[in-house]
């Protein structure tokens, strides 16, 4: 089992004067190297959860642990410098250039100029920012580019954890998809732990290894996309994620979660069936299946070895399952 990066232990948070509990007995384990998306409507407490990690807020009761240590006992500035933070509208410093924004933390840590320059180069390449815009003011960038700068800034000193609060909320749909894909690729490469707050079901299902559904300060379910969609823990989750669009659900499900495992007979590696990656979405797989004109796909792992197969029956199974399981709350 992977190491625990962050753990909420019986966390309560009440804001002075409001009386409303923004976090109510929250228990949550976030594995190192995973993406956890926190999904909920505004006022559900999802942002509060995020800010309890880097101590913008402090718990009223309970504790949050960062790699096994209670964050309340860690020096707050040092803690925050280890945790990247990206928010909507990016929170960039509008009076600074792209370069200066990205180098915020290296500057604070007094790196020498050569090291900063080199790091900014690396980071701009990593988040695919045009080197041309390095000396430009961040105000002159598009929303998508600003978020890339925000991400580069958060990554500057190799944080072990990045917190993201609706970072793509104000960005057009096409750019958002692009940024999501790049974030996934980046995360796979760097193996950073990401806690990602969003109100978009689709975004939460697409990005999260684990999805946390929040409502009125409580976690209603914390599970994989497959289980959230097909085995909702309660009526709230069922209604929240229920989609009339079957295809929408397929976009969130991974092939590996829905395929038929290879029986004892094993797969025939020489089979002429079209291949699909186990990490592809069921949506992509369906397209491949239809285009191929065949009745089955061979599911392969990263090394290309067959691990399962996918047929139209697998899809029928998903549809039946979502109807049956969701009916009983």
């Amino acid at each position: 089992m992977a190491k625990t990066a962050i753990e909420f232990i019986h966390v309560h948070k009440t804001f002075p004067g409001s009386g409303v509990e923004a976090a109510k007995d929250v228990n949550l384990r976030i594995e190192e190297g995973s993406i956890v998306t926190v999904l909920g409507t505004s006022g559900s407490g999802k942002t509060t959860l995020l800010k309890l990690i880097n101590r913008i807020y402090d718990c009223t009761q309970g504790r949050v642990e960062y790699f096994g240590k209670d964050v309340a006992t860690l020096p707050v500035v040092a803690l925050r410098r280890q945790i990247g933070y990206v928010i909507q509208q990016s929170g960039l410093f509008p009076h600074w250039t792209v370069e200066r924004n990205i180098a915020t933390l290296p500057h604070i840590l007094k790196w020498d100029k050569g090291r900063i320059d080199k790091r900014v180069d690396e980071l701009m390449a990593l988040v695919r920012l045009d080197p041309e815009c390095r000396m430009r003011s961040v105000r002159k960038l598009s929303g998508g580019q600003q978020q890339r700068v925000g991400l580069a800034r958060a990554l500057a000193v190799n944080p072990s954890v990045i917190l993201m609060d609706e970072p793509f909320g104000a960005i057009d749909a096409i750019t958002r998809e692009e940024l999501q894909d790049e974030l996934l690729a980046l995360q796979t490469r760097l193996k950073i732990t990401i806690v990602f707050v969003t109100h978009s079901i689709r975004e939460a299902l697409k990005l999260g290894h684990k999805i946390v559904v929040m409502d009125k300060g409580e976690i209603r379910q914390a599970d994989t996309a497959y289980n959230i969609l097909l085995k909702p823990a309660n009526e709230f989750v069922r209604r929240f994620v229920s989609s009339d669009d079957f295809y929408e659900a397929l976009r969130a499900l991974r092939v590996s979660e829905c395929m038929d495992d290879l029986g004892r007979a094993g797969g025939d590696p020489r089979s002429s069936a079209p291949k699909i990656d186990r990490d592809a979405t069921m949506g992509d797989a369906l397209q491949t299946l239809i285009r191929s004109g065949q009745s089955r796909l061979m599911v392969i792992d990263a090394e290309g070895g067959p691990v399962g197969e996918l047929t139209f029956d697998s899809y029928r199974g998903v549809a039946a399952r979502s109807e049956k399981d969701c009916g009983t709350a």
């Binding site: 880097n54 500035v77 803690l79 925050r80 945790i83 509208q89 929170g91 960039l92 410093f93």
Partner: peptide
């Protein structure tokens, strides 16, 4: 913008540093 001040704090800038480098210029 509160979001700007908050991200300064979240990045580990102190109050004085935030004031001098971020709030005053803006």
């Amino acid at each position: 913008a509160p979001s700007v001040v908050e991200s300064a704090a979240a990045m580990g800038m102190g109050r004085l540093q935030t004031l001098i480098e971020v709030e005053l210029p803006l």
